[in-house]
Design a protein around this nucleic acid. Structure first.
Lengths: 344, 344
DNA sequence: CTGAAAGCGCTTACAG
DNA sequence: CTGAAAGCGCTTACAG
């Protein structure tokens, strides 16, 4: 007799209370106890009250695994982001959580580290949890990931970018347009020899690069010598290094578009150390509008991206899909805002 | 006949393959198929090979819920951190992931937002997943949280601070000592009217404050007018504001210890805007050594904290506890490092 | 090295 | 509004 189930509240080897314990305590079937939790409106007020009391007294905590197994609905949403150290994606995550929290969904976070192979592993692992839906970052995934996801028949929404594929759902903004816009801003300000430094070289960065190139080509000012692209992870230290490389390659640059704010901060710090006046000798702009951008000296011109809202709206859309609703749009463009500041 | 289970690979309504499907395809019992996955050394090489092939062909993905239910082990580790937007805790998380990834544990992340009430909710929710272990941030939890955790009988490790309680496991560093050390550094440098600004006022911040006070009292230089403490979340903007408030209250301050780097950055940016020379007119130091600290102009004196290692070692310790091993120490002190830079 | 039986803790139809 | 039965997809002893 391993546990004293006749008296769970005082048994020695007190195993965790189950629904059956709750039901027995009240003198109802487990069905009724189950309903009192899941669909309380179907249970008489009296019983519901007693069941609630029993739950509290026994310290009953539902077993998610059992529920998932029986109901074939996990109430799990998997979110795949490329980085946790980049504030952009923790903001996205915050939006996802806020959209989904109240509904009792559990968010499974996967950090792909910008690697398709990692993403593949994570999808496979997360599929073991039978997620009701998956949130992906970006539009590009490996073929196997697409296969696994479609084989699983799970609704999926892509974040941060916009897809033209009528079979896909996406919430984000045009990375190309944003890159184009900030480059145009530099041109309008009168800069003519505009460089570009970029790291990581993920899909979104490359689209910003395209926007940059297109704007300069339109103006007849594109010069590939002014580009420094490396695939290393983006950091302040790397920004400092890359602006140095750029100035070595093309010392006549009068402005630099950094593919994100971290790089821009590094570039600014480096210029300050070298006595290069910003923006007088060199204008510098970033991308994302992280909190420091408004406060740096000089304050940093950048593109403000709606990442919290991306997470929120993507999760909202996913919830609709999970519930079988037909969403109004498959593609939600949340736009971006140019923040013109002192650094340009 | 809803699904063509006799031919799962070509059935119309193709439901997800189960272990039974794999077993049937090979002509073995589900037991053997199960073993081929979980303890392959117990299965003959031949069968193992066939089973592996069947798994691949059927696209079999194990059902975590079923496994958890049957085995009473979830392979889930819950991690509670107070913030996702603070790089300190994403670093901790990275350490946890790296320590635990290979073992097939799934990490459930809970963001308490520095709220005991939220923490309570999260513990309750995560307990539904039957975690094998829980990682907590800090030493202070609500009474209910402690109750729930001990009732569940789940091993727990506290991160970021050190506990004297012989019943608890903790991995971190002495927040008091670190606060004391950096204040001593200011004293040794010759500063005499040292202010303190702090936000959030969580447990760790308050211990740093105690370290600051103690150092100044020892030197006979403590003056409560020089403290500005607010419970708002810590941001660069708040640092800018608080240094302003401090200078209004105690204009003769010659140094400021900011309870973290974000606040220090804001203070520095603010001083720069007001034409206050750092460190000549006012020395400023922070806490944590975030990446920008080494690059700012002036570079920022701060305390480097071993947060990645905290996550890694805490998770490693937790794994031991989960496996029933007796760890060598209940309390792992990872220390900290003073980074003396230009701002002081 | 392999398998038949039982059961983990829920929920889903289906009755009444 | 309530309940008896069956089953979700695995794994745990226990045999052999």
């Amino acid at each position: 007799m391993p546990n004293d189930s006749s008296n769970p509240s005082r048994g020695r080897v007190r195993r965790r209370a189950t629904l059956a314990d709750v039901a027995k305590a009240v003198g109802v079937s487990t069905m009724t106890a189950s309903r009192a939790i899941g669909r309380p409106e179907l249970v008489s007020e009296e019983l519901r009250g007693q069941i609630e009391i029993a739950i509290r007294e026994l310290g009953y905590v539902p077993n998610r695994a059992a529920r998932a197994l029986a109901s074939a609905r996990s109430h799990v949403i998997a979110v795949l982001i490329p980085s946790l150290s980049n504030a952009v994606f923790t903001d996205v995550l915050a939006g996802v959580q806020d959209a989904v929290d109240a509904e009792g969904y559990q968010v499974l976070i996967g950090n792909t580290r910008y690697s398709f192979a990692e993403e593949e592993k994570l999808v496979n692992i997360h599929l073991q949890s039978n997620p009701d839906g998956v949130l992906l970052t970006g539009l590009t995934q490996s073929e196997r990931v697409r296969q696994m996801l479609s084989a699983a028949g799970i609704p999926t929404v892509s974040m941060m970018d916009l897809s033209d594929d009528p079979d896909r759902y996406s919430v984000g903004m045009s990375q190309f347009d944003a890159g184009h816009t900030i480059t145009r801003h530099l041109l309008v300000k009168g800069y003519r020899r505009i460089g570009f430094i970029a790291a990581q070289l993920d899909e979104r960065t490359l689209k910003r690069a395209d926007g940059y190139r297109h704007a300069l080509q339109q103006a007849g000012l594109y010069d590939s010598r002014r580009e420094v692209l490396v695939s290393d992870p983006s950091t302040i230290a790397l920004g400092a290094e890359l602006v140095g490389r750029l100035m070595a390659r093309a010392p006549d640059c009068d402005a630099v578009f950094c593919c994100n704010d971290d790089l821009a901060y590094g570039a600014i710090f480096q210029c300050q150390r070298r006595g290069i006046a910003i923006p007088q000798q060199l204008a510098i702009c970033g991308f994302n509008d992280l909190p420091a951008s408004a406060w740096m000296n000089p304050s940093v011109t950048t593109i403000s991206t709606p990442r919290y809202r991306v997470g929120f709206e993507a999760a909202t859309l996913l919830k609709q899909l999970i519930c079988g609703e037909q969403p109004e749009q498959r593609r939600i463009d949340l736009g971006f805002t140019l923040m013109a500041r002192e650094s340009t």
